Simulated scan of single mutants.
Amino acid sequence: MANSIETSAPTKVAQPEIQKKAVSFQNILLGAAIQTFEVSTLGQPFEVVKTHMAANRGDSIATSLSKTYARGGIAGFYQGLIPWAWIEASTKGGVLLFTSSEIEYRVRRAGLSSSWAGLFGGIGGGVAQAYTTMGFCTFMKTVEVTRHKSADANLSTWRIAYDVFQREGIRGLNRGVSAVALRQMTNWGSRLGISRVTESFFRGKDTTRKLSTAERLMASAVGGALACWNQPLEVIRVEMQSQSKAADRPTNLNLFSTARYIYQKNGFLGFYRGVTPRIGLSVYLTVCMVFGGDSIKAYFSEKQKQKQNPNH
């Protein structure tokens, strides 16, 4: 009697279901709170020094610090915090968490990795930030830092905003928004994407392993630091929104004419003025928004599960 050979189809390993991170009205408020905390602590001093160096491309870090302090002491490092940075922070944080979480979920459901999901989520969240809340706010923050170089140095920023609106309308108040959108798109695409790649590197072959707190912090810090490759966009944005009135400065600046002007005045290195304080800002911001945002969203998601399944 012939021996029968039993064959069976290879066992298919069940893949974990892609879970959507809970994004509720509560989480949108949470994003606003995290961003407001970030800008009210170390965020705004980094922002002020970075903006000063991008607008005054001949100044070193030490010179920028001394000039900022001379303008108003410790308070000088918080120029533009109230109300502009608070308005921006309280809105863009919620926009980022809501948009990026939704896009990350859709990309993962489409079969792409968490790294690609982070990249596309960051890009979408950054663009949404720029065109919903950041154009006007970044313009007014830059006015705060650079208006001492203009003929209107004694005017309040509210008055400058009113005069700009009278002359140029909404377009004038959103001057440089195209550079802001490119910066935010590349900022958060890089921050989230690189952070997720670093997380995958830490996990290695065990793709489901829960990362330690130190690993998640490191991933966020790496994402924040390496995202500063796009510093030229930040320098262009600051120059477009600056209140300086140099004789050779073109009057109607766009992305290309601004880039040409910066290169003619300061060469290639001019595009990287202020990159050091920006790295500090980016690391701090990314740790707050990626590590902090993920941690708190996971906390509320767990609380929601406990409410739905009280017996587990």
Results as ranks from 00 to 15, higher is better:
residue 167 R to K: 15
residue 63 T to N: 10
residue 15 Q to C: 04
residue 205 K to F: 05
residue 10 P to Y: 10
residue 110 A to P: 04
residue 278 R to N: 14
residue 216 R to L: 12
residue 253 L to D: 01
residue 98 F to R: 00
residue 208 T to A: 13
residue 147 R to P: 01
residue 80 G to Y: 02
residue 185 M to D: 02
residue 294 D to L: 05
residue 170 I to Q: 12
residue 32 A to P: 03
residue 57 R to I: 02
residue 44 Q to W: 05
residue 225 A to S: 13
residue 164 V to K: 14
residue 191 R to I: 11
residue 146 T to C: 07
residue 144 E to H: 09
residue 22 A to I: 11
residue 169 G to K: 11
residue 53 M to D: 03
residue 278 R to H: 15
residue 215 E to T: 08
residue 74 I to S: 11
residue 216 R to W: 03
residue 92 K to N: 14
residue 275 V to M: 10
residue 289 M to W: 02
residue 118 G to C: 10
residue 292 G to K: 03
residue 298 A to H: 10
residue 212 S to I: 12
residue 11 T to Y: 04
residue 50 K to L: 09
residue 213 T to R: 15
residue 95 V to G: 00
residue 147 R to L: 04
residue 267 G to F: 05
residue 141 K to Y: 12
residue 194 I to S: 02
residue 37 F to G: 08
residue 280 G to V: 06
residue 289 M to E: 05
residue 276 T to G: 06
residue 135 G to C: 06
residue 87 I to D: 03
residue 167 R to N: 10
residue 281 L to I: 01
residue 1 M to S: 12
residue 38 E to P: 00
residue 156 S to F: 09
residue 57 R to F: 02
residue 73 G to F: 12
residue 49 V to Y: 01
residue 79 Q to H: 08
residue 242 S to F: 05
residue 129 Q to R: 11
residue 35 Q to D: 08
residue 126 G to V: 01
residue 56 N to G: 02
residue 251 T to E: 14
residue 271 F to L: 06
residue 1 M to K: 13
residue 294 D to T: 09
residue 136 F to E: 03
residue 271 F to A: 03
residue 195 S to C: 11
residue 146 T to Q: 04
residue 251 T to Y: 05
residue 25 F to I: 14
residue 293 G to C: 09
residue 149 K to P: 00
residue 272 Y to H: 08
residue 285 L to V: 05
residue 269 L to R: 12
residue 116 W to M: 14
residue 247 A to D: 13
residue 284 Y to H: 10
residue 299 Y to A: 13
residue 3 N to G: 11
residue 187 N to Y: 12
residue 227 A to L: 03
residue 98 F to N: 01
residue 247 A to K: 15
residue 191 R to H: 08
residue 237 R to W: 08
residue 61 I to E: 01
residue 52 H to D: 10
residue 96 L to E: 01
residue 202 F to Q: 05
residue 75 A to W: 08
residue 134 M to Q: 15
residue 22 A to P: 03
residue 208 T to S: 14
residue 133 T to Q: 04
residue 172 G to C: 08
residue 127 V to E: 01
residue 14 A to G: 07
residue 296 I to H: 04
residue 209 R to L: 09
residue 117 A to M: 04
residue 119 L to Q: 00
residue 158 W to N: 11
residue 266 N to K: 09
residue 38 E to Q: 12
residue 177 V to D: 01
residue 310 P to R: 07
residue 97 L to C: 01
residue 61 I to A: 04
residue 142 T to Q: 10
residue 14 A to D: 12
residue 42 L to S: 08
residue 304 Q to L: 10
residue 132 T to N: 09
residue 111 G to V: 09
residue 160 I to S: 03
residue 19 Q to G: 13
residue 194 I to A: 04
residue 87 I to G: 01
